[in-house]
Design a protein around this nucleic acid. Sequence first.
DNA 1: TCCTGTTCGGTGACACGTCAACGAGTAGCA
DNA 2: TGCTACTCGTTGACGTGTCACCGAACAGGA
Lengths: 156, 156
Amino acid sequence: MAGPRWLDDHQQRAWRGYLAMQAQLQAQLGRRLQAESGISLADFDVLVALSERDAPLRVQELADGLQWEKSRLSHHLARMQKRGLVERQDCPDDARGAFIVLSIEGRRAIEQAAPGHVEAVRALVFDGLDDRQVEAWAAISDEVLARVEQDRAKGS
Amino acid sequence: MAGPRWLDDHQQRAWRGYLAMQAQLQAQLGRRLQAESGISLADFDVLVALSERDAPLRVQELADGLQWEKSRLSHHLARMQKRGLVERQDCPDDARGAFIVLSIEGRRAIEQAAPGHVEAVRALVFDGLDDRQVEAWAAISDEVLARVEQDRAKGS
DNA sequence: TCCTGTTCGGTGACACGTCAACGAGTAGCA
DNA sequence: TGCTACTCGTTGACGTGTCACCGAACAGGA
């Protein structure tokens, strides 16, 4: 390695701004969701994934869709099941496997939570950005994500 | 409330892209930092804050600078102290207070970790973006952060 | 001096995420 | 059938983040 190249001023400013924005946005969306609907952002993601595909879902499929580690999902599902948000069914094809389904309570929770959450995202993010900025943001996210995934694949 | 306004297709795409990028970027930077230097992103932030102001820092000042909750910081400092990365000094002016300083070990850790971390940020993020995108990113972050902080102030 | 309200930082309980390891079950092949 | 290798999902240990609450110390006025 030929000595690190540091960030220039613009990059430094963009990076610090991004870090602050990212942390605060996530925290605020989480607080609002918790206050208005009693669920966390993680719960929300699981419930959305389950309700989008309205059929029993294998744990691994769910993990792939969410891009979560299987053990994180396993722990999280156990907690959600204890709170009555999801239910398990056993899987006839594969005795190791498990199916996860939304409970009545879980469906009620996601339907109650979604409008407020979407509204919060719109109010905190998209109401402040014009079309060109939204396009730019998507392009930046795609580019960075591609590099991260390439790096992840290389490093492992 | 007049019924929620949903996100349009571009917004939806930008939002999902951002969420995925954000999660993967953070995870990858954290993994690399942990692997190369044995510290977490949170440790890194604390160590940077302490090393930038090279003087004993009150816990509350540190919390303000990091935008962390005091109790999160208190727990984290306890763990970092146990690992020998920071030290506490008592505060003559205010017997309730505590000063936090980098230990020798902590200074060594941040100096060892920083170049690789900066390099990772550059490689995963800025090498893929041109100047216009970096500017756009900074502007978007500023705009969103301003809205989040306004919302946070209003809601409390 | 005393009382009241506030600030400082820490604590305990609990939810969450990661890692390594596990048992149970499956698949392929001799 | 028996062997090996692998996948499925879970578990336990541990580090982390949040919330409510606490005792100690400070600040200011009666």
